[in-house]
């Protein structure tokens, strides 16, 4: 059942509507577990669009196997998605610092508050993200180290290549994930791919993971694939490689490539002089989990992340 979580008049003619698809068993007993799947906090992150579609499609194919409640919020920043804007258009606010929001706040805080209140009380929430336009990421769950014991059990079902336990902005104070965890809704962030595009292979992996999680929670009685091998990563397992020059990045490697310390990851070139400004090398051995997607580089730009530890074997 399609429900409208919040409606706000826009300035000329249109309305902003945040909708959810509320999927529940035909004959609920009243004690069903509830999972919320949220996407589109950033208007340029599109992986969640496909994932939401695919989760709903698979449930509808075998609706009788639904034994719990699945609330899907595909676009919580619909204007951002429509206008290809990462932030909330108009105010230019990052929606993922506004939670839990405020009913007396401006548009962003108000809508954040309505979404937050609607999710409150759920047993689990998955906040679907892509990477931004600059970095390509392998599928990964990001969880807050504050709730690691409770979240890790869920995260392992999600069929991503890694679970990264860290205090990033996507799980910090003001984010949907942090705010929901504060009120007892166990919430995880999934990142994958790159902004402004959909990687179906990654998305389908994540959809399989969502069904595995729903099976474990007693929300889904239908078929679900077992989750693949997943590495638990801490900040100390990851090497960041930032550029020390500016120019255009020409990559030599891609995500999932295994590298040895000193291997060439790519070059930064000066397009006016035709010279190589910097050869980017792996600072550690391991697997590339993130690599620069947008080629224009300035000093300090993140070029790659490499997971060492178990991957270095």
């Amino acid at each position: 059942m399609i429900e409208t979580v919040v409606t706000i008049d826009l300035m000329v003619e249109e309305e902003l509507r945040i909708k959810k698809n509320h999927l529940a068993p035909d004959f609920p007993k009243g004690d069903e577990k509830r999972i919320c799947i949220v996407s589109g906090i950033y208007g340029d992150e599109l992986q969640g669009q496909y994932i939401c579609y695919e989760v709903i499609r698979r449930i509808k194919l075998d609706y009788g196997s639904l034994s719990g409640i699945v609330d899907i919020y595909p676009s919580v920043n619909p204007m951002g998605l429509d206008s290809r804007s990462r932030e909330i258009p108009g105010s230019d606010m990052d929606m993922n610092v506004l939670f839990p929001g405020s009913k007396s706040g401006a548009l962003g805080e108000y809508t954040a508050s309505c979404v937050f209140d609607d999710i409150k009380g759920a047993d689990c929430c998955i906040d679907l993200h892509s990477s931004n336009m600059y970095i390509q990421e392998i599928p990964q769950v990001r969880i807050n180290d504050e709730y690691v014991d409770e979240l890790l059990r869920y995260a392992k079902f999600l069929n991503t290549d890694m679970v990264w336990i860290h205090p990033s902005t996507s799980v910090l104070n003001g984010s949907l994930a942090y705010s929901l965890n504060q009120v007892g809704v166990r919430t995880m962030v999934i990142e994958s791919g790159v902004a402004n595009s959909i990687n179906q292979e990654y998305c389908n992996k994540i959809v399989d993971g969502l069904f595995a999680l729903m099976s474990d929670m007693g929300i889904w009685k239908g078929k679900s694939a077992p989750a693949g091998k997943c590495r638990i990563i801490k900040d100390s397992d990851i090497s960041y490689i930032n550029s020390e020059s500016s120019g255009i990045f020409i990559p030599e490697k891609k995500v999932y490539d295994m590298v040895k310390k000193g291997d060439e990851l790519g070059t930064i070139v000066d397009v006016i002089t035709g010279s190589i400004e910097e050869i980017i090398k792996a600072s550690e051995a391991g697997m590339i989990c993130s690599i620069r997607s947008y080629p224009v580089i300035e000093e300090g730009s993140l070029i790659a992340r490499i997971i060492g530890g178990d991957y270095n074997e």
């Binding site: 706000i8 008049d9 826009l10 300035m11 000329v12 902003l16 108009g90 007396s104 706040g105 401006a106 548009l107 108000y110």
Partner: peptide
């Protein structure tokens, strides 16, 4: 010049 609904 123009505002959304609920804007402060």
């Amino acid at each position: 010049p123009m505002v959304f609904q609920n804007v402060v």
